[in-house]
Design a protein around this nucleic acid. Structure first.
Lengths: 227, 227
DNA sequence: GAAGTGTTTTTTGTATACACGATATATATA
DNA sequence: TATATATATCGTGTATACAAAAAACACTTC
């Protein structure tokens, strides 16, 4: 851990949730590196709380698969391997396809309007070449589709899986050569949903993730070599 | 809570995991009923442990969605609604389809042999009309397919989703009119995997869950009326 | 009798204490 | 020097203590 791991106070959330979010974010952004041990007293001191909320946060991270427990040795940040990321992406591919299929059936006129705006918004964001803006526009677009599925379980699962690739997604979006393709992919997904063409939508979503899969796996291999 | 909620000691697992499994089982089997509050001291006394392991177990149940937290009021068993079960089943449908597709690509000769045996085993179990045996044979069969996907994340997600329907699955299997259909569905899935026909396998798996969906939703509506 | 208010009880949220296992360190012995 | 053994240290696992919020209750007042 390089750093300052600052706790962001929120008077209404219990400490355990604040700690959970803090640690989660630190792991996903790479602030806490794979293999790094999470020592309770150390974290407690750093975050200015007692061990209790730290431990409860770790239990949740454990179930999410972000840390692994070694008996009588405590938690450490889970390793990200090519295999594990591929596993996640395979599942995401399937679930994202389901998302757009359900969206075809259930999206409202209003949501469709929003989706259109989000597509345009993404295109504009791409033109600015501002990575952060692009990422935001991308999330906004995907959130509209997710919401349109009306399936809460699906929403939380997809969000969770998406977060697992947080680190790599950013690298992916930074790569400007992909931008036009992304715009096109989004357009195809949008068009299919407008036409309520489940098959086309499903295929488009699948391809969309397939390309991310390739890029991310590529990135992981690079990381592996530079180690 | 009707009952005796006995803790099953396992000297090697930390208490929090034993408690987690105990509570989880109690919720899934309906021993702890939806809406019921999980009070820490009460559970601690009942299970003969302190509040600490109870709380840590609850944190995991919370993330799994089996309990919901009300701030400063603690945890209660999550309600099972028709909507929530439908959400789960929609996702499962998609993931089960993915499972058989991946199995088509990756299953080994040996696993294929086991799958064949499991199919026959299921058919035999059906003939005995022993619900417990049928359920076991069913799980065994599905486990082989799951394993054959080689995707650990997928395996844990599907297992988790499957457990959410534990209560209803049993009712479903008890219904003898479904038995022949189940055998036939399994046969179709098996045949498709043998032929490495991803499309057919995917469709068969989809139908398999679709039928369960109908049965379970039907059951939930019955439960609703009798309340 | 209803509404509001103060008090008690219950239960969570958080901190801390203690026990024990695991690891590392030092010392002794061959 | 290498190995074995004793000992100290560190960190988790579990229990308990204390504070504060919420709920329940009783009491007063209108």
């Amino acid at each position: 851990m390089t750093d300052n791991l600052q706790i962001k106070m929120d008077d209404f959330l219990p400490l355990r949730d604040v700690v959970f979010n803090t640690l989660r974010q630190a792991i996903l952004t790479g602030d806490l590196k794979p293999g790094e041990r999470l020592m309770e007293i150390h974290l407690a001191d750093k975050l200015g709380v007692s061990r209790t909320p730290i431990r409860e946060a770790i239990r949740k991270l454990e179930l999410e698969g972000l840390v692994i427990m070694i008996p009588r040795r405590g938690a450490e940040v889970a390793q990200i391997t090519e295999k594990s990321m591929n596993d996640v992406l395979e599942v995401r591919q399937s679930l994202d396809a389901l998302c757009v299929e359900l969206a075809c059936d259930r999206i409202t006129e209003e949501e469709l309007e929003n989706l259109k705006r989000a597509c345009v918004g993404f295109e504009l964001a791409v033109k600015t070449k501002d990575t952060k803006k692009i990422a935001q526009a991308d999330v906004a677009l995907h959130d509209i589709i997710l919401k349109a599925t009306g399936n809460d379980r699906l929403i939380s699962l997809v969000n969770n899986l998406a977060e697992q690739m947080y680190r790599y997604r950013f690298e992916y979006i930074k790569d400007a050569t992909q931008h036009d393709m992304l715009v096109e992919e989004h357009r195809q997904i949008y068009e299919s949903i407008v036409k309520k063409d489940r098959d086309a939508a499903s295929k488009a979503a699948w391809t969309h993730i397939e390309n991310q899969k390739k890029a991310i796996i590529h990135q992981i291999r690079l990381d592996q070599e530079n180690k």
